[in-house]
Design a protein around this nucleic acid. Structure first.
Length: 419
DNA sequence: TCTGGGGTCCTAGGGCGA
DNA sequence: TCTGTCGCCCTAGGACCC
């Protein structure tokens, strides 16, 4: 049996833990640069504010309904997430942390009653110890646990946040009552495909021939169908897995067109990505650089240039990586164009400990020592104190975050004082 | 004026060596 | 030496997730 634990409106709940007067009020969290709505309280959802809504387009609705607006505070959410996950891990041995607010549990060797009891215990303990409400769905496969979780959450007044698809009757009933778009793994494109052949619900989907599903939705679609039929094809993935790619991408405050400006950004993105790479003790041997226009602009042509190149050696040196990234940028750059977003993606990652020596390794030891020194200076005096020559020395790396809450759990000066 | 960022997995198609 | 075929690897792009 698998369970999916999901924190209810996680980011909104984190803000409410420390500002309980916000309970019952509509509340939204905005993305980096205060661009889009990325989380909503139930009250905000019922005002019709959709996920991903551009904040500037909903300004009036926010004002009219006194919607509380927050910039995303990932330091706070990350810390709260760690607390929730560690409570879950105290209760059950097999846990997969799926995202910042979700975890799968596998109940091996538990009776149904024991699993039910454990789930309810987790709901109560997480709420009591962290203030975060969670919902749990229990079923025979991960995909069905997702469906069960949705039922638990949608009908919380009846379910108290817990629902188990414990019989064949319940499974069929659940699939009959879920639209394809709401099933984990069916996105917009697959929904369109399914809709064209009049497949609207989970039940319609599992009635399709395997052959059709495989052909039109790949092996992933077929695995999903098996899961919804009650046959597990996905297992728990425990433990911290090293990332297979590391990306640093950003939209710019305004469009830029000069090569020099882009070189500065790409260098900075390379430095940030390299640091993430060193943090997981990895190296990379492939780099992808992209630059693109503003996709929302009505007039003008839209373009997206990208290039992936292989390094002749593996490295995690900010200097080598940024140099190579800039050489890729020079190849794709075209002048007289306006760019709104760019990024650097590091691929071909391998553990630093397995470094393959190559005749192209340049000053390996020297680079290693230099990166170590840069990292320790940054650790001591603050992130990105040391900059490469091609980075703008005056530019302060800052996002627009006008409505940021305090770091209640990680900054000593931000801790709440109870008088 | 203002529309996020960071991941994973799969497939098709081309290059290339056996 | 030339040609056809097969399978592997790589890459780009698309789909999905949070």
């Amino acid at each position: 049996m698998f369970a999916l634990i999901d924190c209810n409106n996680f980011y909104a709940s984190c803000e409410r833990v420390f500002q309980p007067h916000l309970n019952g009020k509509p509340l939204v969290i905005l993305s980096n640069n205060d661009g889009c709505v990325i989380a909503r309280s139930n009250e905000a959802k019922s005002l019709g504010i959709p996920m991903g809504a551009p904040a500037f387009k909903y300004k009036e609705i926010f004002q009219k309904n006194n919607v509380q607006i927050f910039s995303s505070n990932f330091t706070l959410y990350g810390d709260m997430s760690n607390r929730v996950m560690s409570i879950i891990a105290r209760h059950v041995p097999e846990v997969e942390i799926y995202s910042i607010d979700e975890a799968f549990i596998k109940f091996s060797g538990f009776s149904e009653d024991e699993a039910n009891k454990k789930c309810k215990e987790i709901i109560n303990t997480v709420l009591k110890w962290t203030g975060i409400p969670v919902s749990i769905g229990l079923a025979s496969t991960k995909s069905l646990a997702k469906v069960a979780n949705r039922i638990a959450k949608k009908n919380s007044h009846k379910t108290n946040g817990f629902y188990s698809i414990s019989s064949e009757k319940k499974r069929l009933e659940a699939l009959d009552n879920i639209f394809t778009r709401d099933i984990w793994g069916i996105g917009l494109q697959n929904e369109k495909k399914l809709s064209r052949i009049n497949v609207k619900t989970g039940m319609d989907f599992i009635s399709l021939p395997d052959k059709w599903v495989k052909k039109n939705m790949s092996i992933i679609g077929l695995k999903l169908k098996k899961e919804l039929e009650g046959n597990p094809t996905l297992d728990i993935e425990e433990g911290k897995v090293d990332k297979k790619s590391i990306a640093t991408t950003r939209s710019f405050e305004s469009e830029i067109s000069s090569l020099d400006d882009l070189i500065e950004r790409i260098t900075t993105f390379s430095v940030v990505a390299s640091k993430k790479l060193r943090r997981q003790n990895s190296e990379c041997n492939m780099i992808c650089v992209f630059i693109r226009s503003n996709p929302f602009k009505q007039d003008g042509k839209k373009y997206h240039f990208s290039l992936t190149g292989s390094l002749p050696f593996s490295t995690n040196s900010s200097i080598e990586i940024s140099k190579f990234a800039v050489s890729l940028l020079r190849k794709i750059y075209s002048n007289n164009k306006l760019y709104k977003k760019a990024g650097v993606i590091l691929m071909g990652l391998s553990p630093q400990s397995n470094h393959q020596f190559s005749m192209f390794d340049k000053d390996l030891e020297k680079q290693k020592k230099l990166m170590k020194s840069i990292d320790s200076i940054d650790n001591k005096y603050g992130l990105y104190k040391v900059r490469l020559g091609s980075q703008d020395q005056k530019r302060i790396w800052k996002m627009k975050r006008q409505r940021l809450s305090r770091n209640y759990t990680t900054e000593i000066d931000d801790i709440l004082i109870v008088r």
